[in-house]
Computed example of a mutant assay.
Amino acid sequence: MPNLDSQIPYWDAAAATKTFTHPLHLPWLDGIDRHAAVLDYGCGYGRTLQELARHGFDNLRGVDASPGMIDRARLVHPALHFTVLDEPPRSPCPDASFDMVVLFAVLTCIPGEEAQHRLITELHRVLKPGGILYVSDYLLQNDERNRMRYDRCAAQYDNYGVFETADGAVFRHHPSSWFPHLLSAFEAVDSRKITVNSMGGHESTAIQYLVRK
């Protein structure tokens, strides 16, 4: 079985075709200095990093485990800085080196709970004291299509909300109670539910969390 907590071959193959949609909530960024050091972890092809640049942030770095995604990011956004993660979730960044970390639709790509905890521990390491972690990810969906997917895969993956896609990926949707547990090492600042389009074009419910180290 492939490593479900990175699935790099899938993302390399999908790098040229996938579109990501989770939005930045700009009011949450109002109090953050535009020279703050910002890391986009799991940056994909750099969409969110480019949006941050458009809103005046000028100390930006994106990292991703998929070389294919990073190749696309460098091609589309040549002025921004992108790095391939050689040993995810570990990053090459020093301790306490960022004022903000953005984690958009990354947890959905990491089905395992232990692997998610390792990632959050890594992000806690690279954040400065008082630094902000901005998480956006998918909640469990209530429609029949998704319930059938969850039911079909629950026993195999021992986790309700994990499902397989027709093009070969394994993803996870989360109960709302999971995020406060996962982010318990941080101080909660704000949260909000949003509607986004999935990579497959389906309207989905997501949640965004803003927490502080």
Rank of each mutant, 00 (worst) to 15 (best):
H77K: 06
T121Y: 02
K128E: 07
D64F: 01
W11Y: 15
N159S: 15
G62C: 14
C153V: 00
D137Q: 10
V189C: 12
G46K: 06
P175D: 02
A15D: 03
A105G: 06
L123C: 02
Y138W: 04
G42S: 10
P23I: 03
H174S: 12
M199P: 08
A79L: 14
R192T: 14
L60E: 07
R74I: 00
S176Y: 02
F20A: 07
R149A: 14
P23H: 08
G46Y: 08
P89L: 05
G168V: 12
S177T: 15
P27I: 03
W11P: 03
A185E: 11
R152Y: 04
K213E: 08
A166P: 06
E114P: 00
V189E: 05
I70P: 07
E51T: 15
D137E: 04
P88Q: 00
T121E: 06
D64L: 10
D33L: 09
L85M: 14
Y138V: 01
V126R: 01
V102A: 08
L80R: 07
W28G: 03
N142V: 04
V84R: 13
V126Y: 04
M199I: 02
A13K: 13
Y150N: 11
G201Y: 03
L123I: 08
A155F: 11
D167A: 06
P129C: 04
G44N: 00
H173G: 00
G161F: 15
D71F: 06
E51H: 13
V106H: 05
V162D: 02
G200C: 01
E113L: 11
G31K: 14
T108C: 03
A16T: 10
G201D: 01
A14M: 01
Q208M: 13
A155D: 05
H124S: 05
